[in-house]
């Protein structure tokens, strides 16, 4: 599979990837390396993994990281209830206790969690380790074995090697510095806010019901808004939400009076400070400059 094919498959899976991202996915598949995606919230990091799973027709296993994540939630856990039940049944039946002792800690009594599921999946899978920067350093260190060797060690069973090589995608918002050891095992890609043409493509693909003129105006407006000094800069996810909201109002283009759509801006502005800062006169200015930028970029037509 080459890069062009990967790009095409991702587009079919509703993800418009730029060339370097497609290249990275190709590399991840070719040299079996995990991909580390870093970037602001809402730029489409998690969506890459979902799109890859859909495009490559692979099962997706997702591990959502959080502060108190432990091995029981991430890798495996012994099924104590079933073990007890098995003991009681054998006692009642008067069966072979020596055999029971050997079988009690076998794979039959193992509850597999996402990491183990991805490693033991009979067909190659996509493993998404989402927001890795939220976990502690101990868990990060544990991941080194999984990412580097594609294997998991269970003390009672030994080392379980991957039966198929999963495509591992880690995402990080950069809230904490990840260790060099982890970074070095991964291919790195910084996902930035998309360029104007790319964002237009994304919105056209994901919100096909929206009018072209509305999409152009809204995307230009968001691009201008990102240049403002905001606490939380709106990402692609916010742009999509906003345009969907505008569509539900049956708008064919952005109203000329900003007051008519000011109420919908809560989809873009997520803090009190940002909402206070973007006053009506700034909205008017943004709409005007957005039009000019659009004409320069060749995505908007000058008004007659």
């Amino acid at each position: 599979m080459n890069v062009a094919q990967i790009s095409e498959l991702l587009v079919k899976a509703s993800y418009i990837a730029d060339e370097s991202l497609s290249e990275m996915v190709w590399m991840g598949l070719s040299i079996n390396r995990p991909l580390l995606l870093e970037g602001e919230a809402g730029v489409g990091k998690t969506a890459v993994a979902k799109a890859c799973a859909s495009a490559l027709n692979r099962p997706l296993f997702r591990l959502q990281c959080h502060e108190s994540l432990d091995l029981n939630q991430a890798v495996y856990e012994w099924n104590y209830s079933r073990q007890l039940l098995e003991i009681r049944l054998r006692e009642a039946e008067g069966g072979d206790k020596a055999n029971l002792r050997e079988n009690l800690f076998s794979e039959a009594f193992l509850l597999q969690r996402p990491l183990m599921q991805a490693i033991t999946s009979p067909t190659p899978a996509v493993l998404l380790i989402d927001e890795i920067d939220r976990t502690d350093e101990a868990f990060e260190a544990y991941l080194l074995e999984v990412l580097g060797e594609s294997q998991i060690t269970v003390p009672e069973l030994g080392t379980i090697k991957a039966s198929s090589q999963p495509l591992v995608i880690l995402t990080s918002n950069g809230t904490r510095d990840l260790s060099d050891a982890l970074r070095r095992r991964c291919l790195f890609h910084y996902l930035d806010y998309p360029s104007l043409p790319r964002e237009l493509n994304i919105v056209k693909t994901l919100v096909p019901e929206a009018d072209i003129e509305l999409i152009q105006q809204a995307v230009l407006f968001v691009h201008q808004l990102r240049k403002e000094d905001l606490d939380k800069i709106p990402g692609i996810a916010e742009t999509l939400d906003w345009i969907r909201i505008l569509c539900t109002r049956n708008l064919k283009k952005l109203p000329e009076d900003p007051a008519d759509f000011a109420g919908t801006l809560s989809a873009l502005l997520k803090t009190k400070n940002d909402q206070w800062q973007i006053a009506p006169h700034i909205l008017t200015k943004l709409m005007g400059s957005g039009q000019r930028v659009g004409i320069d970029a060749g995505v908007a037509v000058p008004k007659k």
């Binding site: 370097s20 290249e23 990275m24 590399m27 950069g174 070095r184 291919l187 790195f188």
Partner: peptide
Amino acid sequence: KRIEKCWRAIAASSKGQWQ
């Protein structure tokens, strides 16, 4: 261009290095 993109993903490990 392709080699540059691939090597960039291998060599860089932070936003600063990526840029």
